[in-house]
Design a protein around this nucleic acid. Structure first.
Lengths: 136, 136
DNA sequence: TAAGACCCTGGAGCCGCTACAGGGTCAAGC
DNA sequence: GCTTGACCCTGTAGCGGCTCCAGGGTCTTA
């Protein structure tokens, strides 16, 4: 039930430094302390930190998570905001995938400029890369 | 032919601050100066900066680019290193795409937990996010 | 001679941690 | 009672790749 920061880290899988960082930046509230100035955490902290970490593995920014945590604090409100935030995040991820696919194609074409090992002087890849960005 | 930093920026599309940053970090060599201490650039600088920017639009890290520039300085060597570096980069991009696809799936499933707007208290998304990371 | 466009340096800030240095606390073993 | 070693604390700096700012200098044009 009650634990120090090391155990909280073990349970949740977070790094100790990360937990303190989340406290500094206001994602986690400052917990009570022992007489020796150690932080004491309880089940609520485990839950909150798990929530944060879970969101992080989904690639959300800390600001997004801050918002979600804010929504949680108003349980009677509509969760339309939550849905919207998630949709925005999905759109962001899709856009990144799209951009990376385009990039992959370009890189693949670039790779084919130099199918075998020549001297650097004649390397098709370096030649291509030396053209100004927009050129073909 | 000879130009100040502003024109180099205009020609290449880089930011002035970025050019100075590349100089600080050794990607661009320090150019000669006017009597009034202004940097003077020529065609070679345009070419080198274009190369760097081109690599950057392909998502390469500055360290990779530093390596490529190093290869260029040894034109008689085999370009196998160049090919390898590019292949590694392609692999990296593919891995990112793979990870983002997996993420997209998870996010989509999460979104379906709350098909319509309820109250925050009953929001399937927040409920799901509150589970520890590993749980289903 | 004054305005305004351009340039300079040095330093701080962004994100999300991570990694110290230099200390304090606490329980167990001798 | 004293030492060892595991754990904790604070504060600061670093990563990458810029970006922005303050506070100044320089050069061209009117």
């Amino acid at each position: 039930m009650n634990m120090k920061i090391g155990e909280l880290a073990r349970i949740t899988g977070a790094q100790i430094e990360t937990i303190r960082y989340y406290e500094r930046t206001g994602l986690m509230s400052a917990p009570p302390r022992t007489e020796g100035n150690y932080r004491i955490y309880g089940d609520k902290h485990v839950a909150r930190l798990s929530f944060i970490l879970h969101c992080r593995t989904l690639g959300m920014a800390l600001d997004d998570i801050r918002q979600l945590l804010g929504f949680k604090d108003a349980p009677q409100e509509s969760c339309g905001n939550v849905n919207r935030l998630l949709e925005d995040h999905i759109a962001l991820v899709r856009e990144r995938i799209r951009a990376l696919h385009a990039l992959e194609t370009v890189l693949q074409q670039l790779r084919e400029q130099c199918p075998d090992a020549r001297t650097v002087k004649d390397c098709g890849i370096l030649k291509e890369l030396s053209e100004p960005s927009g050129a073909r």
